[in-house]
Design a protein around this nucleic acid. Structure first.
Lengths: 155, 155
DNA sequence: TTCGCAGATAGGAATTATTATCAAGAGGTC
DNA sequence: GACCTCTTGATAATAATTCCTATCTGCGAA
């Protein structure tokens, strides 16, 4: 959807981002990391670690699944990739009472609820108006909470 | 946050919703289900199946973890509760290239990307303006895609 | 260019989360 | 109250993810 043409042009632009991130954060650019990143960048779907591993095995027969997991975690930590937020998660639950949204601290992982009537009342973008029957919509906001920010400063 | 006072009043209103859902869908109202629901309703946090099970063991020492899992799945199927959508999921990934959002078919589970500049450009509600440093926000829309709707009609 | 080492990898084993199986038990309708 | 079917508990099985450790390597310093 998003990256409808992963041309050489856009590939290299993503690879530049990767190199840049490595340089800045001191993260090493290993062949494994490069390949994981390229495979993910060229994927039109939203693969799991397992799926990426399968796809990469042809090119890198010795690549271990664990490395894929670790690499993805590393990339996510540096903001190069996102883990999707779409339930079927490793379950956390709440009663479906009033509609609200979630604020997640990416440091301490605490989840806070908040209300957002403006969002609730807005429709959905034209682009998806004819996709099917819409049932509900939910916003998730990520950041770092004051508690964790303070720890940074003092600790 | 949301249910700041789980008073008897609001408890009973939720329990009514549960009874009603049971009546409509033919789902049986067992003591286990009642307790799982009540415990979740009174929880201020967002417990996992494991956590709920722990909390309930005091009251129902013979309650099995499996039952908690099954009950939560049943409730979710009937829309009585939600599984949260906040990453730390059972990983699906994508490169953090352009910002986009996700459309999930609750029937076939397919995930589609879409763009929503109006949402991207809107700020965040006053309520959370001082929570900490906001890094990004993401919308997830649930529904049933045309493909699945069509299957319903023909199949 | 070469060297050294902190950080990265492979491979398998261990954990953790979740589901399936199945016999026994209990809602709810008549 | 009896019956039928859906649920439960216990245990086993599977899936997803992380740990362990010996070995290797990217890359900054010399």
């Amino acid at each position: 959807m998003t990256k409808s043409m992963s041309s050489d042009y856009s590939d290299s632009h993503l690879l530049r981002a990767l190199r840049e991130a490595c340089r800045i954060s001191g993260m090493r650019l290993t062949p494994q990391r490069l390949e994981v990143y390229r495979e993910l960048a060229r994927s039109e779907d939203h693969p799991s670690a397992e799926e990426l591993h399968q796809r990469l095995l042809e090119r890198m027969p010795s690549l271990s699944l664990d490395t894929v997991y670790r690499t993805l975690a590393t990339f996510a930590r540096h903001g190069l990739i996102h883990k999707l937020d779409t339930a079927e998660s490793q379950g956390r639950f709440e009663v479906a009472d009033d509609t609200h949204h979630h604020l997640v601290c990416s440091r301490c992982k605490e989840i806070m609820d908040f209300h957002w009537p403006g969002f609730d009342q807005s429709g959905v973008p034209e682009e998806i108006a004819h996709w099917g029957r819409i049932e509900r919509k939910n916003a998730v906001i990520y950041g770092i909470c004051n508690k964790c920010l303070k720890k940074d400063r003092t600790g």
